[in-house]
Design a protein around this nucleic acid. Structure first.
Lengths: 182, 182
DNA sequence: TCCGGTGGAGAACGATCGTTCTCCACCCCT
DNA sequence: AGGGGTGGAGAACGATCGTTCTCCACCGGA
């Protein structure tokens, strides 16, 4: 198994465990056993746990936004594409291992104590807001709609996570549609 | 110092430390030194750390909602009172030690591993949503507005926490006003 | 004045965890 | 065939932390 492969396996295991149970609740030894990569190799690839946490967040950010953008791009009109953001959220909320936003969770857990985690969360949210702003601009809608549309999505993620129901995505979608009408 | 007083001091210290740095980042010894209550007494009052965490969340929920309701009640009209929710959030976001929603943070940190924390977060959010629904009903607005108004508030809290800016409260307020117009 | 019990200070214990080290098997190069 | 270096398994180390225990000072009642 080459180094590329080992790295991917470690990151896969880290993502599943960190996201599913929280960063501090998962020990490095558990990542070793879940990934099948020896502890020595894990520490060669990621010299400290914080490096692994950072890599996990960066990779997840890229994949999350790419998945969202791919789904949204299938919309027929620019207005429809905005609303498809909430459809995608609803699908996400329905996944059995959905547990809210990895960045919000990590920020709540370590944001006060780890500047790297805080920065990763800030960057992720900023890129999401910029993406929404792009959709709004493409639809010829006024710029001021971007922030509330992002807030609705953000609120839906948190509410769905804590309540355990995907319903907030539909409420957010309806409200977004109403904001787009005016 | 009687038992009531000791309990209050411990909870005050726990709230400041747990909210400020996260539950797992704070040791019981630090709560002892911050509260001035001996470790033995702390454990008499709260037999385990989880009991202290639960008491912290319960007390914070009660006070948070009471503070909000007191501020909102000063609004002149029922419509104005709904919008004052976002004004109160903006004041909260501006406080120097604001670090997001204690329940969202605790849920992200321990929700997957502690059913008590998950339940406290669910209850808190449910009571907040019910409170918003009451304001909507008082204003004679349709019930379906309650959920999106709560989502805007929820999104504003998370976004303000991570971005470090109180601005999301104003965006949420403007969007809420627009939803109330239709 | 003695005494039992309450409470404080802090050491001690046991577990967990991040990180490193030891020891050994394997394998490519000459 | 021999040797050096890579990698695996897992023990070991040092720190932290939740929780308990020890020892002692104090204090109200006989």
């Amino acid at each position: 198994m080459d180094s590329e492969m080992a790295r991917a396996r470690v990151l896969d295991a880290a993502e599943e465990l960190f996201y599913g149970r929280g960063v501090q609740a998962v020990g490095m030894d558990e990542i070793r056993s879940a990934s099948g990569v020896s502890l020595k190799r894990v520490y060669q690839l990621f010299p400290a746990k914080t490096d692994l946490v950072e890599a996990y967040l960066l990779r997840r950010d890229a994949r999350w936004r790419a998945d969202l953008a791919r789904f949204v791009a299938d919309g027929d009109s620019s207005r429809e594409r905005i609303l498809r953001v909430y459809d995608w959220l609803e699908r996400w909320f329905g996944e059995p291992d959905f547990r809210g936003c990895a960045f919000v969770n990590s920020y709540g857990e370590m944001g006060a104590v780890s500047e790297a985690v805080a920065r990763a969360a800030r960057t992720h949210k900023e890129l999401f807001q910029r993406y929404v702003a792009g959709l709004v601009a493409d639809a010829g809608q006024p710029d001021r709609l971007a922030a509330p549309l992002a807030l609705l999505a953000e609120g839906a993620i948190t509410t769905a996570a804590i309540s355990g129901s995907p319903e907030p995505a539909r409420h957010a979608r309806e409200a977004a549609a109403r904001l787009l009408e005016a």
